[in-house]
Design a protein around this nucleic acid. Structure first.
Lengths: 197, 197
DNA sequence: TTTTCTGTGCCGACCAGACGGTATAGTAAT
DNA sequence: ATTACTATACCGTCTGGTCGGCACAGAAAA
C-alpha cells in the first residue's frame, strides 16, 4: 500500500541547514497537481500522494491549507523575481531591464507554467491571498522600464503578460515560428529602437 | 416516477427564447459566486443559494456540475463574441475589426469580469473543458485583423489580453489616466497609422 | 363545467465519499 | 532526551449526485 520511499536523501546533505528539501518538494507536488488535475483538486491528500508522503507530513510543514497557498504564492513571486534579475546586466542601459523581463517571462514556458499554476490555485481558492501578488504586479512596471517611454513600456509589458496568459490557458494562437517572431519583436520594442510594421 | 424524457436537447442551438429566467439566472448566480468567493467555492449548493432556489432546482437544469461549467463557458464565449461584433461597422476598413475587439475587451470591465470569472471557474475545475475556448482563442486573432500586418496585430492582441488579465487579477499597474492613455494608443495601433513613442 | 390525466419545474431529505483539520504514536539522528 | 520528521486513525462538515414527491399548468375526458 504505502510505499516507503527514501528518495529524499539526495538533497538533504547538500541543502544548507534550515531549508529542508521536503518542503520544497511538497510545493512542487502542489504545482504538479494543479497542472495535472486542476486547481479545485488541489487537496492536502493529493499533495501528499503526489509528493510521496502522508498527509500528516504535509500538515507538519504547512499547518493549514492556507499556509500552503501562501507559500505557493510567495515562492512564485520569488521565482519570477529571480528569473528576471538573473538576466539583468550589471550596468543596464535603458531598456535592458525591460528586455530581461520579457525574456524571463517568455523564455522558460515550463517554469512559467509552474508559476502560473501556483497563482491559479491561489485565485481559485482564496482571492484575498492575492493581495501581495497585486502589489508585486503593480510595482513591477515602474521598476522595470527606466529610461523607456511610458507608452512603449506599457505596451511591451501588457503584451508580455498577454503571452503569459495564453500559455496559462494553453491557448496561444501562434505557430512556433510566429511566436519566435513575436518574442523577437518584443525584445526590439523593449529597447528604444524597435518599430512596429 | 419522474419520467425523464430524453427530448431535452442539451445546450446546443437552444436559444434562450422561451425561458430566459431560471437557467440564465442560475448561470448569473454561478458567476457571482466565483467573483465573490472564488472558484473553489463554486458548488451546486452555493449556486442554488445565490439564485434563491434549491439544489434540486439547479440539478434539474444542469444534470451535473460539468454541465453547468460547460454552459458557463459556452455563454462566456457567446457574450465575448457578441460584444465584439456589436461594435463592428458594416463595411470595415483594415484595422476596424481589431479596433472593435480592443474596445469590446476593454470597454466593459464589469461585463468582462463576469466572462473571465466563468473561464476561471472552468480552468480551475476541469481544464479539459477549456478545449472549445482554446479553439475560440486560436481563431480569434486571424479573423480579427484582416489587412493589418501580422506583428502589429499580434502585439495589439496580446497587449489587450494582458490588460484583460490585469483586470482579472485586479492588478492593473496603471492609474485611470494612464489606462485611458494606453487604451487610446491601442486603438491607434490597431489602425495602421499608430506608432510607438 | 367539472374532472382527470400528464408533463414541467422545483423542492427537501438523504447518501457515500472527499474534504480540512486534530491527535497521537512512531522513527531516525543528533 | 531532544529535535525533526513521518504515518495512521479519526472527526465534523461539505461535496456532487439520487430520489420521491409536490404544485401547477394545460390538454383530454366526463
Amino acid at each position: 500500500m504505502t510505499k516507503k520511499t527514501v528518495k529524499k536523501a539526495a538533497t538533504k546533505a547538500a541543502a544548507p541547514r534550515g531549508r529542508p528539501s521536503s518542503r520544497e518538494s511538497m510545493l512542487d507536488a502542489a504545482e504538479a497537481v494543479v497542472v495535472q488535475q486542476g486547481a479545485v483538486r488541489l487537496t492536502l491528500d493529493a499533495v501528499a500522494k503526489q509528493a510521496g508522503v502522508s498527509k500528516g507530513g504535509v500538515m507538519y510543514h504547512f499547518p493549514s491549507k492556507e499556509a500552503l497557498l501562501q507559500a505557493l504564492v510567495t515562492r512564485a513571486m520569488e521565482r519570477s523575481y529571480i528569473a528576471r534579475t538573473r538576466l539583468q546586466p550589471d550596468s543596464p542601459a535603458p531598456g535592458d531591464i525591460l528586455r530581461a523581463y520579457v525574456q524571463a517571462s517568455v523564455g522558460d514556458p515550463l517554469g512559467n507554467l509552474r508559476v502560473s499554476s501556483a497563482l491559479l490555485a491561489v485565485v481559485a481558492s482564496d482571492p484575498t491571498l492575492m493581495a501581495p501578488v497585486r502589489e508585486f504586479f503593480s510595482k513591477r512596471l515602474p521598476s522595470i522600464a527606466p529610461g523607456v517611454p511610458f507608452e512603449r513600456a506599457a505596451i511591451v509589458h501588457l503584451a508580455t503578460e498577454g503571452l503569459w496568459l495564453m500559455d496559462l490557458f494553453g491557448a496561444s494562437p501562434f505557430t512556433k515560428k510566429q511566436r519566435t517572431q513575436v518574442v523577437k519583436l518584443l525584445g526590439e520594442l523593449a529597447g528604444n529602437g524597435g518599430t512596429l510594421p
